[in-house]
């Protein structure tokens, strides 16, 4: 599945970047009971509880941040597996400064899923992913506002 979109934050690029790279904030931006703890400067381990249609479960996984260009862009690599299947994704995030102290975030990604998650939850994945991204971005926006 391909993920693509953009979002404009009401805040300058360095603030948006700091929010994005704050693992504690990132964890709260993902709906469900998510934990993320750093195992190195660019690698995090944790778990996420997900529900997609009839399939729900806890996924244990790893998040790696690569090709980091502060405060402009980075690649996120996510790998997770659990009782209901597995997921593997790569995302690319780019921040561009906009007039009025705004920041445009553009994101593209590829998400591969398997197991029960894919065979039973397939029809719901698109809409669940969209709603998760929407919810996450709103959380990040709030955090940006607080840091201004």
């Amino acid at each position: 599945m391909e993920i693509k979109g953009d979002y404009t934050f009401n805040g300058p690029r360095p603030v948006v970047w700091s929010v994005l790279r704050d693992v504690n904030i990132l964890a709260t931006a993902i709906p469900g009971e998510t934990t993320l703890k750093p195992i190195s400067a660019t690698e995090y381990e944790g778990s996420i509880k997900l529900k997609i249609g009839p399939v729900s479960g806890v996924f244990a996984g790893k998040l790696t941040v690569a090709d980091e260009v502060v405060p402009e862009s980075c690649t996120l690599i996510i790998e997770g597996k659990g009782g209901a299947g597995f997921a593997k994704g790569t995302g690319y995030i780019k921040l561009t400064e906009q007039p009025d102290n705004k920041t445009l975030m553009q994101y593209t990604g590829e998400l591969g899923i398997g197991g029960k998650l894919a065979s039973v939850g397939q029809r719901m994945i698109d809409s669940v992913a969209k709603s998760m991204i929407k919810g996450g971005l709103e959380k990040l926006e709030k955090e940006v506002a607080q840091r201004l």
Binding site: G112, G114, G115, K116, A118, S119, Q122, R123
Partner: peptide, 14 residues
């Protein structure tokens, strides 16, 4: 199936 031989419609809904 997807290109990795992963079944994508394993329910009577799909």
């Amino acid at each position: 199936y997807d290109e990795n031989a992963q079944l994508l419609n394993g329910s009577l809904m799909d």
